[in-house]
Each structure stands twice: as C-alpha cells, then as structure tokens.
C-alpha cells in the first residue's frame, strides 16, 4: 500500500481545500468500509484520505419533516433514531441491511452513494425518496437528484475538490410508502444479485396511486431510476395486477450483465419479482401513513 496522509478537517472549507490540492490522489473518508478495502486490495493509490467525521455538516442527522443525513452519518444512527425510523421505513430497509452490524456502525449512506456501486443497497431507496445530494466544492454548493449522482461503476459526478456534504430527503407526503428489497443467495453478508426500491403515494381515495417511483440495483452500470415503470404507476389502482405490470415494465428498463453473482436472465426475473414485492410493502406502509 502506498503511504498516505490522514487529514481530519474541522470545517467544510478545510476539507474542500485539501481535496482540491490533491485532486484524484485524495478521497473523502467516512466509515472507510469501502475506501480502506479498496486501498488494501490495490484498486488505487492515494496520497491523502480526508476524514469527514470531524465536519459538523457531514455528521448531523436532522429530522424536521424532511430529513437531512450528513454524508458521514453511519447507518446505525439512522435506524436507531426512532423518529427517523418511523418516518422513513423505506430507508431503514437499506440502512439495516448493508454489511453486518459492525459495518453498519461505520458505513454511511453518503459513502454508499459516493462509492457508486451498481449493487449498492443504499442508493435505490434514496432515489425513490426523491433525495437531493448536497455537494460542496471550490465554487460553493450545488445540489442534484441522487439518480444523477453515479455515472459508471465506481464513478460519480464529483469534480476536483468536491465532496458530498449531505443527503436531503423530502418529508413523506400523506399516503406515501416506500420499501427496498434485494435478492441474495444467502441470508446475510452478501452483495445484491438484484435490488429494487419502490415508493408510491396514494390518492385521496386511498385506492389509486397518485405517483410512484421505482429504482433498480445491480442490473445496470449504475443504480437505475426506472422512469417508465414509475410513470406507469400514476393513476393506476394499487392492486397486485398493477404491481405485476410495473415489474414487467421495470424489467425492460434493466440492463443486467451475467457474472459470478447471477445470470442476466435471473436478474431480469428478480426485477419483476422484487418490484411486485416491494410495491406491496410500500402500499401497506402507504396505507398506514395517514
């Protein structure tokens, strides 16, 4: 391993300055559950890691109707906060699933997003929650929808000197429900063969879907927002038939490869099944969210 410097800035400006100075030879560091493993595995070398855990904006978890998750907030803080857990069960599905207990004590949803793995469990639930990524850089702050954040396997939109500060999740409307499920051959400690997050908002009649969002993991080069399947849901009755059809449409938006984790054909089938299953859970949650 190439020797690197550990930097622990106290402010966003300091963090941006260090990152700008080193460019690609530095990376922000939260839990380190991806970066350290990749460094040790020789995937890349760094001159500096920039620990964000001393930066207040990156470590705050604020619930005020909407939810702001600092980029370095570990998963356990999200699911152990009972108010957050009650309001965002669709996010908890992912936060309580990533790695195991030890990993969840370190790993952050922000890090999960920046790592930009196609199979990330954390990103699809953020997408269906219409989450906005808050980015700080030398030119100041910019904001973008999370579905635009990842650009390729392991690559994201962050430019020189930029870092992810926080994730802003809008307050759930009345009648909103979301869920995430992944398929793994084992029962723990595994990477998704495919994953689906679904969200829907019920109309006043509580039987019709006003709007819906579906996002797919591990079936494309990045986590995918399934635009057609999402659009399809609007105005449809919240029934198993609708969910099954949404699954069929979502499967046409998936572009999986076959690899050691599963065949492309299997992944297509899983998108259909998991879309149905997550929409059913989202509906249950929507119905109890009055």
């Amino acid at each position: 391993m190439h020797p690197f410097t550990y930097v622990a800035p106290r402010t966003l400006d300091e963090a941006v300055a260090v990152l700008e100075q080193h460019g690609e030879r530095a990376r922000p560091f939260a839990g380190g559950t991806d970066v350290l493993v990749q460094l040790r595995g020789g995937r890349f070398d760094l001159d500096a890691i920039v620990d964000l855990k001393g930066v207040p904006e990156a470590t705050a978890l604020d619930l005020n109707g909407s939810l702001r998750i600092g980029a370095a907030v570990p998963c356990y803080r999200i699911y152990e906060d009972s108010a957050v857990a009650a309001a965002f069960p669709g996010l908890i599905d992912a936060a309580s699933l990533i790695g195991g207990i030890q990993i969840q004590s370190r790993a952050s949803l922000g890090g999960n997003l920046c790592n930009a793995s196609p199979s990330a469990d954390g990103i699809c639930p953020l997408i269906v929650h219409s989450t906005v990524a808050v980015v700080q850089g030398p030119q100041g702050e910019r904001r973008l929808p999370v579905e635009e954040f990842c650009t390729a396997p392991g690559a994201n939109v962050l430019g020189r000197g930029e870092l992810l500060v926080a994730l802003e999740v809008p307050a759930p409307e009345k009648g909103f429900g979301a869920a995430y499920q992944r398929f793994i051959p084992r029962n723990e400690m595994d990477i998704a063969v495919a994953g689906v997050a679904s969200a829907l908002t019920l109309s006043e009649d509580r039987a019709t879907i006003a709007s819906g969002r579906i996002a797919l993991a591990a079936v494309g080069p990045t986590p995918l927002f399934a635009a057609k399947a999402s659009a399809f849901l609007a105005g449809k009755p919240a029934t198993p038939e609708t969910f099954a059809e949404a699954g069929e449409i979502a499967s046409t938006e998936a572009a999986p490869i076959g690899d050691m984790r599963g065949t492309a054909e299997h992944r297509i089938e899983l998108v259909k099944v998991l879309t149905r299953r997550t929409l059913a859970i989202a509906l249950e949650r929507a119905q109890s969210n009055r």
């Binding site: 398929f183 051959p185 063969v193 599963g262 065949t263 054909e265 299997h266 089938e269």
Partner: peptide, 8 residues
C-alpha cells in the same frame, strides 16, 4: 445448485 440454475 444456485438460484440462477434453479430458475433455469
């Protein structure tokens, strides 16, 4: 006899 093969 993994899941992909069982589906097949």
């Amino acid at each position: 006899m993994n899941p992909s093969r069982i589906m097949e």
